[in-house]
């Protein structure tokens, strides 16, 4: 590019802000992930290694976040717990994202009768408040990680389906889709090139929201005894451990709760920023 051209347009204008932001976030995530694995490798403790000589110890140089009622290092357990609390909810919300988007697009594209049927099924699932459905399912089928995941997946896709359908219906009438049809693009190609790139940003915002809600659900259900069972180092399950020792060793319940709060907040704020960028564009 010649010098005069690069002066005539400011550089920032040519970068797609959404793409730029996504790239930044991806880098940050990668950095966090490597930092996390490094920490897992560096920590001298095992998440399940009990040490009865060193129970309920307050935070110190040896145990940054103290130890719990079995003498396990809380900081190490929090690190392992991130895999449960964040990783599991990530997998659940991603499944909801993919399934819901597929269902929504399918409904929007399948004609009035199909649309009506698919959306009423979605509405039926949507009627069950997430937590109530999860408590019922996990409780009846026996509290376990698998049942928790199944329960939360069953209630995670409807919002995506509704949004994807609404966005697809709106876009289906737009001129550039008509042009693509007139140019002879197949439905699949139109979906891939024209529909998905335009509906994904909104769905991504919803997904950040869904991920943070799922983190709260996973740890909340584990705290209530319906989810991941101790001794797994899930943050909510750790909170449940700490509840009994609240009076003598409050740090056992302070740190897991703080971890949930921070994780959810960071994800929410990232989603907000993404939404603001989207709004600024149009």
């Amino acid at each position: 590019m010649s010098l005069s051209q690069s002066f005539s347009i400011s550089k920032g204008q040519l970068v797609d802000p959404l793409r730029h932001f996504t790239r930044q976030i991806a880098l940050v995530c990668l950095a966090l992930l490597s930092l996390w694995s490094l920490a897992l490798w560096l920590t001298p403790y095992e998440p399940a290694a009990a040490d009865f000589l060193d129970r309920l110890a307050p935070p110190s140089a040896a145990h940054w976040a103290g130890t719990d009622h079995l003498g396990r290092d809380i900081a190490t357990r929090l690190l392992y717990g991130a895999g449960w609390s964040l990783g599991l909810s990530l997998a659940i919300s991603l499944t909801g994202f993919v399934v819901g988007t597929f269902v929504g697009i399918f409904a929007a594209r399948s004609g009035p009768a199909g649309d009506f049927a698919v959306m009423r099924v979605t509405d039926s699932f949507f009627a069950f408040p997430e937590l109530i459905a999860a408590v019922t399912f996990a409780g009846l089928f026996g509290p376990s990680t698998t049942n928790l995941v199944i329960a939360l997946m069953m209630v995670s896709w409807m919002k995506f389906a509704r949004l994807a359908r609404a966005l697809t219906v709106n876009l289906g009438e737009s001129d550039f889709i008509t042009q693509a049809r007139l140019n002879g693009l197949s439905s699949l190609l139109i979906l891939w090139r024209h529909l998905l790139p335009n509906i994904l940003p909104s769905l991504l915002v919803l997904w950040t929201n869904s991920w943070s809600r799922t983190i709260l659900s996973v740890s909340g259900l584990s705290f209530l005894g319906f989810g991941i069972q101790p001794p797994s180092a899930e943050w909510g399950a750790m909170l449940l451990d700490g509840k009994a020792y609240m009076q003598t060793a409050p740090h056992i319940m302070i740190f897991p709760g703080l971890a949930v709060l921070l994780a959810v907040m960071v994800i929410n704020l990232t989603g907000d920023r993404f939404r603001d960028l989207m709004a600024g564009k149009t």
């Binding site: 943070s212 709260l216 209530l224 909510g236 709760g257 709060l261 959810v264």
Partner: peptide
């Protein structure tokens, strides 16, 4: 903060 606060933790 309130939107991210786990209510069971706030309760504790």
């Amino acid at each position: 903060i309130g939107a991210a606060m786990p209510s069971y933790w706030l309760a504790l």
